[in-house]
Design a binder for these strands. Structure first.
Length: 566
RNA sequence: CGGGGUGUAGCGCAGUUUGGUAGCGCACGUGGUUUGGGACCAUGGGGCCGCAGGUUCAAGUCCUGUCACCCCGACCA
């Protein structure tokens, strides 16, 4: 490709809207342009990087035995109504009606659609296992799009679905996908970790997320350097130290604590540590009211609580509901005297003595509260987020936490969707049995952005060769110099002939401009044809290295061949 | 959805306090000089000042409404 033919609008200045490094660089290097909040157009260089990634994904999917197809992006409501997700997705789903007022949506994910196709077309155990995938645009009306294409409302996803006879078959399919995902992200040059994850709204029995550690990550990864354990903090179990306080139980005191509603206010008012306070959170679990108790400095883990209760919806009670339940304003809820609701106590709280709780009376707290003596727990379990100071659940070494960005997610769905949609096969005995399903996703736009996030410097993107839109840039320093121009042409043609994607920067720009752009767009190898063109000597610079090397042009071609074609 | 902020040329911004002919840098067109790290000189084009209403002799500027975009939060009692 000649730069004069390419549509490559680079920017010297950073648009004010961009926050993360990858977002800034994708805009500056002319990979993307924004059309609306969370909606981006891909320009040639961005599209080319995406296609490189698609090719890698296709190779690894095909190698894992998956077959590509393409479902519609616009989907009638019925399959989602059958699975219950027409409601579950809520406002996150882009919905529309056709001229006959029938409900449709822009597909946010396609479990139901794949299940629907498979149930109609696959009847016998002989056709299983079956693994299907597509690379397709998804639509989710995100609450807050962020960081360019990292959290966007329209994005490209590779989604794969496996259908097996039984759990053992699913385990095999899942493992194949796990291995394929590792290969894909390795080929992208990414440093990543596979972490245990909660299955969340998808349902199912097991799941792992592929994460990269990143400052702009919206998840928290708990990991252990000693044994290699890694999990999403939603999933990581908190191991009790087993140390029960042996302090004597003191007598209960009800104390006036005017307007002391937050943990911060109450601890400063009482001059105590948040570790001596227990907060009582009132939740609606489906239609039931529950109270969840965790230590004052801890965060309740809704995923754990939801799984524990087996409910489909879990949300904080409204202030009105809290008042109805506790007869007190928000901030003064406590477990003592609460009736007709389930009290769930975090493991850690059951080891505490003489703690502080709200008194279910506005402006009052109880001091010296003790479990069993003053109130009873209906359930005692691990319901808090893991935190610094906790230990690895496998080897009990200290746990570390880091923000993480999710680029892939694999699920063992089990029969959640196949049962809901009646997707069954007939076994050897003529019995109808629900297929056992898995679901596997990779966000392509996000993966591209993540590669840039992990691989850039102050001058621009540093593409790994496997993803680079162009692998080599040939830069004639002076377009007015015929020796330079003709040698550059020669190298350009030779490199193309051996299958290298090369950009000939034939713009009549000053050398500095061409160098800046070549670095900004992240081309892995730059060949500058300059003053020594008459002696057939060129300068070769690897984007990852700081120094350039002079060599004969044949040697430069050889260098590219070895580096790029292996 | 709550809070905060910003909308002025393709991009980055000033001008709004105190109403009075819409500016700067980069980018872009033309001519020339340049040509190894985002050149220089000359010259030119480009604006419904987000949108709608209002006040006024006069509105980018004041008032009302509205839309868009960005940031923080949206369970941490």
């Amino acid at each position: 490709m000649r730069t004069t033919n390419l549509f490559m609008p680079t920017m010297r200045e950073v648009p004010a809207e961009a926050e993360s490094d990858s977002h800034k660089l994708m805009l500056r290097a002319g990979l993307i342009r924004k059309l609306a909040s969370g909606i981006y157009c891909f320009l040639p260089l961005g599209l080319k990087a995406m296609k490189k990634l698609e090719d890698i994904i296709r190779e690894e999917m095909d190698a894992a035995g998956a077959v590509e197809l393409l479902m519609s992006a616009m989907i009638p409501a019925e399959p989602y109504k059958e699975s219950g997700r027409w409601e579950v997705f809520g406002p996150e789903m882009f919905r529309l009606k056709d001229r006959n007022k029938r409900d449709f949506c822009m597909g946010p994910t396609h479990e139901e659609i794949f299940t629907d196709i498979v149930k109609h077309e696959v009847r016998s155990y002989r056709a299983l296992p079956l693994m299907l995938y597509q690379i397709q645009t998804k639509f989710r009306d995100e609450i807050r799009p962020r960081f360019g294409v990292i959290r966007s409302r329209e994005f490209v996803m590779k989604d794969a679905y496996s259908f097996d006879r039984d759990e053992a078959g699913l385990d095999l399919s899942y493992e194949k996908m796990y291995n394929a995902y590792c290969k894909i992200f390795e080929r992208c040059g990414l440093e990543f970790v596979a972490v245990d994850a909660d299955t969340g709204a998808m349902g199912g029995s097991g799941s792992q997320e592929f994460m990269v550690k990143s400052e702009i990550g919206e998840n928290t990864i708990a990991y252990c350097d000693s044994c290699g354990y890694a999990a999403n903090d939603e999933k990581a179990p908190c191991i009790s130290t087993g140390k029960k306080s042996d302090t004597a139980e003191e007598s209960l005191v009800k104390l006036l604590t005017p307007s002391m509603r937050t943990i911060e206010e109450i601890t400063s008012f009482l001059s105590c540590s948040p570790t001596q306070v227990v907060k009582t959170l009132i939740y609606m679990a489906d239609d039931k009211v529950i109270a969840a108790l965790v230590r004052g400095d801890r965060e309740l883990n809704e995923a754990k609580l939801k799984n524990l209760l087996g409910c489909t919806m879990l949300e904080m009670a409204s202030p009105e509901k809290v008042y109805e339940i506790t007869s007190a304003n928000v901030g003064f809820a406590g477990p003592i005297g609460l009736k007709e609701l389930t009290i769930v106590v975090d493991n850690e709280v059951s080891d505490m003595k003489n703690f502080v709780v709200g008194a279910n009376d506005t402006d009052y707290h109880y001091l010296n509260v003790n479990l069993h003596r003053d109130f009873k727990a209906d359930i005692t379990a691990d319901i808090r987020n893991i935190a610094l100071g906790d230990v690895c659940p496998l080897c009990t070494a200290p746990i570390a936490l880091t923000p993480g960005l999710e680029i892939g997610h694999i699920f063992k769905l089990g029969t959640k969707y196949t049962k809901a949609l009646n997707c069954v096969y007939v076994d050897e005995n003529g019995q109808e049995i629900p297929m056992v399903m898995g679901s596997y996703g990779i966000g392509l736009n996000r993966t591209i952005a993540t590669i840039i996030e992990q691989s850039h410097d102050e001058n621009g993107i540093i593409w790994p060769i496997a993803i680079a839109p162009y692998q080599v840039a040939v830069v004639p320093a002076n377009m007015g110099d015929t020796a330079q121009v003709s040698l550059a042409e020669e190298i350009y043609i030779r490199l193309k002939a051996i299958g290298i994607e090369v950009l000939l920067d034939d713009r009549n720009e000053r050398t500095g401009v061409k160098f800046k752009d070549t670095e900004l767009i992240g081309v892995p190898v730059r060949i500058t044809v300059g003053r020594k063109a008459a002696e057939a000597i060129v300068e070769v610079k690897n984007r990852k290295e700081s120094d350039a090397v002079d060599m004969g042009y044949e040697a430069a071609i050889e260098y590219c061949r070895n580096l790029i074609l292996g």
